[in-house]
Write a protein that binds this DNA or RNA. Structure first.
Length: 569
RNA sequence: CGGGGCGUGGCUCAGAGGUCCAGAGCGCCUGGUUCGGGACCAGGAGGUCGGAGGUUCAAAUCCUCUCGCCCCGACCA
């Protein structure tokens, strides 16, 4: 491709969004263009990278036994009513009506459509397992789009749905997908972590999250460098900590006028925040629960929901708090609650003696509270959010918190959707059974961003060969120079037959061409400049900056050998 | 949805009631020079200052409302 006839509108100045390197470089390099918050056009270069990523994903899905289809983005409401997600998915679901007033949504995921398809087409265990997938545009009305392609309102996802006879079959399908995901990420040259995570609105019993570690990622990951334990922070566990157990003293009440925050109370009583216990009230599937964590910690709602088996966990509102405690917000405690409340105590708190809690009375706190003595314990669990420095639950060494981009998430769904939507097959023994499902999402457009995030330097992008928009760029230094032009043209036609080549034949000054080449980040660069007089051109590797003068007649051989070399890295 | 910030030629921004108030640099067009790291000279095109309303003799500039975008948080495959 001749750059003079291509469409790669690079920017000279940095776009204002400079916080996330991948977004800045994709915009500056003419890869993508924003048309609204979280909505992007892929320009030719970006689309080229996208297609390469998509193709790797497709190849690995097919290799793992997936069968490609294409489901519609526009979904009728009735299907979503069947799964109940028309109401439970929340405001992220884009809803719309057709001209007759019939309700539709723009699908954010395709469990419903795939179940509808399979319950129609698959009647016998003989047809199982079935793994169907598509690569398609998804819509989510994100409250806050961010990072360009990283969190968009419209994005492309590969989603595969597995249908099996039983749990054992599901395990096999799940494992196939796990391996396929690892192969994909390796081919993309992306470092990744496989995390245990929470399921979110998709549901399911067991999930793994594939996360690319990068400082600008928006997900927090708890990581143990010594044993490799890795988990999404929202549900990460922590080992046992030595706590200051305190002494068993009698319960007392103190006047704490207007002091509602941990900080206010602890400084007023001159105690450390680790000696106060926060009582957080929640409604779990309509039932009240109290969660107790140390004052210097945060509660993990994910873990709490997991331990109490709650589907919908919501912080109690002001009114509910008054009803349960008889006091306004800020004075809640586990002692003398007005109603029967399920009390979940963090494993650290249960060891503590003589702590401070709210007194369930306006302007009062209790001191000397002892769990078990002064209030009943319904459940002891690890419900506090992990902080960096906490001990690893597996090996006890120190946990770290890093950031990452979640690029894939795979779920063992079980029979939830099949049962809700009436999707049954006949098993060998003649009985009707619900399909046992799994679903496996991979953010294709997000992978483009993640790749840019990992593969760049201060001058621009440095694509790995597997996703680069072109293999090699020819830089014609002086387009006015007849000899340079002829030689560049020759190399262009010669190399084009063995690799994909972008030829910068523009009448631009050398500086512009070099800057653009580095910015765009094509792996190999061939510079046709003044050394042609000596029969030499220069070939260089974008990423490492290594550079060699090569005789004209050797350029093809050299380009190929360098290509093989960087491809193997 | 809370908090903060920003909307002025294609891009990055300056201008904070009037008279150099519609500007600069980059980009773009014409002509010429140049050609190994975002060249130079000359000429030129291009904006109802996000929108609506208001204050004023006078509004990019002050006020109100509104829309959009960015960042932090809440939320979230």
């Amino acid at each position: 491709m001749r750059l003079s006839q291509y469409f790669a509108p690079t920017l000279r100045e940095d776009p204002p969004e400079r916080d996330i390197p991948s977004l800045r470089l994709l915009l500056k390099g003419g890869y993508i263009r924003r048309i609204a918050a979280g909505v992007y056009t892929f320009l030719p270069l970006g689309f080229a990278v996208y297609k390469k990523v998509e193709n790797i994903v497709r190849e690995e899905m097919n290799r793992a036994g997936g069968i490609e289809i294409l489901m519609p983005a526009l979904n009728p409401a009735e299907l979503w009513e069947e799964s109940e997600r028309w109401h439970t998915f929340g405001p992220e679901l884009f809803k719309l009506k057709d001209r007759t007033g019939r309700d539709f949504c723009l699908a954010p995921t395709h469990e419903e459509v795939s179940v509808e398809l399979v319950r129609w087409a698959v009647k016998s265990y003989r047809q199982l397992p079935l793994l169907i997938y598509h690569i398609q545009t998804k819509f989510r009305d994100e409250p806050r789009p961010r990072g360009g392609l990283i969190r968009a309102k419209e994005f492309v996802m590969k989603d595969l749905y597995s249908f099996d006879r039983d749990e054992k079959g599901l395990d096999v399908s799940f494992e196939k997908m796990r391996l396929a995901y690892e192969r994909i990420l390796k081919r993309l040259r992306l470092p990744y972590l496989v995390l245990e995570a929470e399921a979110g609105p998709i549901g399911g019993k067991y999930t793994l999250e594939f996360t690319v570690p990068t400082p600008s990622g928006e997900d927090e990951v708890v990581l143990c460098r010594s044993c490799g334990y890795a988990s999404s922070r929202s549900i990460a566990q922590r080992g046992d900590v030595d706590v200051d157990e305190g002494e068993e003293v009698p319960l007392g009440k103190v006047h704490t006028p207007g002091l509602t925050t941990v900080q206010e109370v602890t400084s007023f009583l001159s105690v450390s925040p680790s000696r106060i216990v926060k009582t957080l009230l929640y409604m779990a599937d309509g039932k009240p629960i109290a969660a107790l964590v140390r004052g210097d910690r945060e509660l993990s709602e994910g873990k709490l929901a997991l331990f109490v088996g709650a589907k919908a966990l919501q912080m109690a509102d002001e009114e509910t708090i008054r009803r349960l405690t008889g006091a306004p917000m800020g004075f809640s405690g586990p002692v003398n609650l007005k109603e029967k409340v399920f009390i979940v105590v963090d494993k650290e708190v249960v060891k503590m003696r003589g702590v401070v809690t709210g007194a369930n009375e306006e302007d009062f706190h209790f001191v000397g509270v002892v769990p078990g003595r002064d209030f009943p314990i319904s459940l002891v669990a690890d419900i506090a959010l992990v902080n960096s420095g906490d001990p690893c639950p597996k090996c006890g060494s120190t946990l770290e918190i890093i950031r990452g981009i979640e690029v894939g998430h795979i779920f063992k769904l079980g029979t939830e959707y099949s049962e809700k939507m009436g999707a049954y097959f006949q098993d060998e023994d003649g009985s009707l059974k619900p399909f046992v499902m799994g679903c496996y999402g991979l953010g294709v457009s997000r992978l483009v961003s993640a790749s840019a995030e990992v593969h760049h330097d201060e001058d621009g992008l440095c694509w790995p060969p597997s996703v680069a928009p072109f293999d090699l760029i020819i830089i014609l230094v002086n387009a006015q120079d007849k000899q340079q032009r002829e030689i560049a043209e020759g190399i262009y036609s010669q190399l084009s037959s063995i690799m994909s080549v972008l030829y910068d034949d523009r009448e631009e000054s050398p500086g512009v061409k070099f800057k653009d080449a580095d910015l765009i980040g094509i792996p190999l660069q061939v510079v046709v400049g003044r050394k042609v007089k000596e029969g030499l051109v220069e070939i260089r590797v974008r990423k490492t900056r290594e550079s060699k003068d090569v005789a004209l007649e050797e350029i093809e051989e050299k380009a190929l050998s360098l290509w093989e070399k960087i491809r193997a890295e």
